[in-house]
Design a protein around this nucleic acid. Structure first.
Length: 350
DNA sequence: CTGTAATCCTGCGAGC
DNA sequence: TGCTCGCAGGATTACA
């Protein structure tokens, strides 16, 4: 579920709970996530202090402060340092607290190949590390007391210095958690791949991006390189708000329509953030609260129900490979009459 | 270049 | 009640 408003809500929830806290230990389940977890990251993370919690598009960025004495080589061979219990610093959940964590195991024993860090440590040996998390479809990122019962599908646990834990849970495992030693490098990489944040988007930029392509509006809005953070729900809601058909090719829009779409995207996302995002099924904010914007959907998930504006039945068709909901009257495709019987077949073969 | 499909997963509702 | 099927918030890759 997590699109920008949901991720923003998580970030806002986590910020006061994490800022200034020290990560004392990390546990990771043996299950693979979308991106490979390097077992050495647990040791690299231990001892770092959370400097800030931010968001970029749908990515959660946890800025970390380096430990006082960063180990020259964070790979497992350096485990002899200090008097820490070596491989798995946290008491294994299954051992200590009974039947709580069947899934969580020492990541050391996993069969995941040892990979180099995605980006190397900065030249000076000193660098600003980053924990980057993507919630995928069903990810949850919350802070709870360490003795809170462990739920299913728990894949990463970051123990904090105040008796709480930052937990990453993800039923479908489309999400990811990664550690980067060099924050600046990741950021420039992300900025190269992601479009601007969907607030105060430059009007000229957006017009050019939309009218410069023959792709349909749904595809354009879902494209993270055009604007970062829009997903299926808010793409549909934005098209409705702008009274534009999601299947319209971008290069068929007038400048005014481009502006309307841009304003609709910003307005919908702003409203959704105010409502703490949308909870369809699994989504919860960083403090475990659910969202409320699902009660304000005009078209998303309302197939067959009346359009809030004109009462025509909301239609669902497939654009850009995604279920797309719209009002056939308010969002009639340009040059096509609102009430023609021509129905678009969108079955995807077999 | 665009678009479509498949993939990574689990779970849930619809339909039989 | 129980089974199978299709589909679900995302991102990436391959192929037509």
């Amino acid at each position: 579920m997590p699109e920008l408003p949901e991720v923003e809500t998580v970030v806002r929830d986590l910020r006061p709970l994490l800022t200034g806290r020290v990560i004392t230990a990390v546990r990771r389940s043996a299950f693979k996530l979308r991106r490979t977890w390097n077992p050495a990251w647990a040791a690299a993370l231990a001892g770092t202090r959370v400097e800030a919690v931010r968001r970029r598009g749908k990515w959660i960025l946890v800025d970390l402060e380096c430990k006082a004495d960063p180990p020259p080589n964070p790979l497992p061979e350096g485990r002899g340092r200090k008097a820490d219990p070596p491989p798995n610093p946290l008491p294994s959940g299954r051992g200590s607290s009974g039947a709580t964590s069947r899934e969580l195991d020492s990541q050391i024993g996993s069969n995941v190949a040892l990979l180099p860090f995605p980006l190397g440590r900065g030249p000076g040996g000193r660098s600003s590390p980053l924990l980057r998390v993507h919630l995928g479809m069903t990810g949850q990122f919350t802070v709870v007391p360490a003795d809170a019962p462990e739920p299913d599908h728990l894949h990463a646990v970051f123990a904090l210095d105040n008796g709480h834990e930052l937990r990453f849970r993800d039923q479908r495992r489309f999400g990811s958690a990664e550690f980067f030693a060099d924050r600046a490098a990741v950021e420039s990489e992300m900025n190269a791949e992601l479009g601007p944040e969907p607030f105060n988007i430059d009007a000229d930029y957006f017009r050019a991006a939309v009218s410069g392509t023959g792709r349909n509006l749904k595809a354009v809005l879902l494209d993270q390189t055009v604007v970062a953070g829009v997903g299926n729900i808010y793409a549909d809601e934005a098209c409705f708000r702008a009274k534009l058909h999601p299947g319209r090719p971008g290069n068929k829009l007038t400048a005014g329509e481009c502006d309307a779409l841009r304003e609709a995207v910003e307005a919908v996302l702003t409203r959704a953030i105010e409502s703490r995002g949308s909870t369809i099924r699994d989504y919860v904010g960083g403090s475990g609260l659910r969202g409320g914007f699902q009660n304000e959907f005009a078209v998303y998930g309302r197939t067959g129900e009346p359009c809030p504006t004109c009462a025509a039945a909301v239609v669902c068709a497939r654009y850009a490979g995604r279920a797309s909901h719209f009002c056939p009257r308010c969002q009639a495709p340009e040059g096509q009459k609102p009430a023609t019987g021509k129905k678009k077949r969108t079955t995807r073969g077999k």
